Amino acid sequence: MPYRPFTDQNCSIAAALEIVGERWTLLVMREVLLGRRRFAEIRRNVGVAPNILSDRLQVLVEHGLLRRRRYSEHPESYEYVPTRKGVDLNPVIITLLQWGDRYATPGGPPRVPVHTTCGHDADPRLHCSHCGEIIQNGELTVRPGPGATAGQLAEGVLPRP
C-alpha cells in the first residue's frame, strides 16, 4: 500500500502518525524504552529487516525521539538513547499495551507495568489536570484549540451531546 501523507489534515493525531505511525516504529521505541538500545538487540526483539530498522532509527533520530551515542570506536558502534521527546511517547505505548492486554492477548498480559516508586503492579489512568479525577471512557470532549482552522472552529465541541 503506497504511503499517503496526512498534510491535508489539521490534526495532532495525524501529525504524530507522520512520525510514529509506520508499522515498526512503536515496536522500535518499545525496545529502546525498555533499555535495549543497540541495533542487534532491537532487531532481535522486533524481528525487523536490517534495512527497515536502519530507516526507522534514522527517522526517529531526525525527529528528535532518539539520539545516537557511540559506545565503541573499534569497531565504530552506536546505541540509540531516548530523548525527552522519546520518553514522552511512553504513555502512548503503555496505553496501547493496556488496550492490547484487554482486547488482543487472550492468554493474558505478556508484560505488566510496575510502578518503580512503590514496586507494585500499576494500572496507569488518564487524570484531569485540573481536578485530579480519573477520566472514564465517554467523559472527554474536544474543543477547538489555538491551531484550529475555520472549519474546526465552526464545528465547535466534539462529539456533540
Rank of each mutant, 00 (worst) to 15 (best):
71 Y>V: 15
51 N>M: 03
36 R>F: 05
19 I>S: 05
80 Y>M: 07
18 E>S: 14
89 L>D: 03
114 V>C: 14
26 L>F: 02
31 E>T: 09
42 I>D: 00
29 M>F: 04
54 S>L: 04
74 H>R: 13
73 E>N: 08
14 A>W: 02
68 R>I: 02
116 T>A: 13
103 Y>C: 06
113 P>K: 08
71 Y>E: 11
97 L>W: 01
97 L>H: 01
30 R>F: 01
59 V>P: 00
45 N>W: 04
112 V>I: 15
53 L>V: 01
49 A>M: 06
111 R>L: 10
80 Y>N: 02
35 G>R: 05
41 E>W: 05
108 G>R: 13
27 L>I: 00
29 M>L: 15
46 V>Q: 11
47 G>M: 05
56 R>N: 03
25 T>R: 13
93 I>A: 13
21 G>R: 12
72 S>E: 11
77 S>Q: 14
100 G>S: 14
70 R>Q: 10
89 L>K: 07
62 E>N: 08
96 L>F: 06
13 I>M: 07
101 D>C: 07
16 A>K: 10
32 V>N: 13
95 T>M: 01
80 Y>E: 03
34 L>V: 00
108 G>W: 08
59 V>Y: 03
29 M>P: 04
49 A>P: 07
110 P>H: 09
16 A>T: 06
100 G>I: 06
53 L>G: 00
90 N>H: 02
43 R>D: 00
38 R>D: 12
48 V>L: 14
44 R>I: 01
41 E>I: 02
48 V>W: 01
89 L>P: 04
40 A>M: 07
47 G>R: 04
74 H>Y: 02
18 E>G: 10
101 D>G: 02
53 L>H: 02
50 P>E: 12
90 N>A: 12
28 V>R: 12
50 P>V: 02
50 P>D: 09
108 G>Q: 09
36 R>V: 00
63 H>G: 04
27 L>T: 06
110 P>Q: 09
74 H>C: 10
106 P>H: 09
114 V>T: 13
38 R>E: 14
102 R>M: 08
105 T>Y: 15
40 A>G: 01
92 V>Y: 00
19 I>Q: 08
46 V>H: 11
110 P>D: 10
73 E>S: 13
78 Y>V: 15
36 R>D: 09
52 I>E: 13
78 Y>N: 12
107 G>C: 05
32 V>Y: 15
28 V>W: 10
47 G>P: 04
52 I>G: 04
53 L>R: 00
52 I>P: 00
61 V>L: 03
95 T>C: 01
46 V>E: 05
84 R>P: 01
104 A>Q: 12
41 E>L: 08
111 R>V: 12
26 L>S: 11
57 L>C: 03
20 V>S: 08
41 E>T: 05
69 R>Q: 15
73 E>M: 11
108 G>L: 11
18 E>R: 07
34 L>F: 15
86 G>K: 04
95 T>R: 01
40 A>H: 03
40 A>Y: 03
105 T>D: 06
48 V>R: 07
103 Y>R: 14
68 R>C: 03
102 R>L: 15
78 Y>F: 15
29 M>W: 08
81 V>A: 03
30 R>Q: 08
69 R>P: 01
80 Y>V: 11
44 R>E: 15
97 L>Y: 00
93 I>G: 12
32 V>C: 13
40 A>L: 10
